[in-house]
Amino acid sequence: MSMELVCPAGSPAAFAAALENGADAIYVGLRNHTNARAFPGLNFTPQTLQEAVRQAHARGRKVFLALNTYPMAEQMALWKESIDCGVAAGVDALILAEIALLDYAAKVHSNTPRHLSVQGSATTPQALRFFQEQFGITRAVIPRVLSLEQVERLCANSPVHIEVFAFGSLCIMVEGRCQLSSFVTGRSPNCHGVCSPAEQVHWEEHPGGERQVRLGSVLIDRFGPEEFASYPTLCKGRYQGDSQPYYALEEPVSLNTLALLPRLAQAGVVALKVEGRQRGPAYVSQVTQVWRAALDALDSGAPFTLKPEWQSRLAHVAEGKQTTLGPYHRSWQ
């Protein structure tokens, strides 16, 4: 069975780009705080969501609605209304992380499939069994922490289908379990759908061309005049111990698993997810096209070879202009 290509869309234009270039499924969020890319100007209204579902279904493709942030006690109503809104629009699955919402969706909308979001932080067959038994999930997106060998074993023993991240920005922490952003800025992926928020980024330029960048009050990095300056995501800054400043957590790179495609397919992974609802239609077009071509090549049955053109096109749109196999490759860990 061929693997499903799941692409991001943060706007109707990006949605059209994903659809046009061969995504099998497109995941979207609503324009509120119920999803992990709650950026200004991004995401869908109930009307644009309905229209997107209509367009996708007309072409035999699917739409998944991500509701993957954690509501506080007094916010439950908004999240539940958002679930209702997705179901009313006819989405093909809900991507959820939080147990009370999973419980609600399982009871009230049992006919709409539920996928466990990467934010649900499930890394073992036992954890997946819990979500399957309690909420009837049929698929889980697993955190970007497992090595390829571990993904293979998990697929072999999982009670539900497994979707993995294939391309895009690399969260190096277990998703759903990182409070670095809230520690510094008071805003987090879990509760606000943002990490290292842009409104708290301050660039300072010094005579001579040196630049430095802060998130809130914290100095994340300094760059020489010729140095590539990346966005100050907290886990990709340079800090110092006894040593010279270094990328103590991770370099500014993104994930690219194109080279692992045959092994992911063989492992029984059902779907490949592309990160990037915050990116524009040009990114979505490029990435969807390349992954569609690669998956079609894989499905053709001919021996799979990586085309240099694919890699260079992906490298061109990658964050930090460098890519890595990330945790899939054991030596990264």
Partner: peptide, 10 residues
């Protein structure tokens, strides 16, 4: 404060 967990050993 325990802030984050990764697959990587820092």
């Amino acid at each position: 404060l325990p802030l984050a967990y990764s697959a990587r050993c820092f």
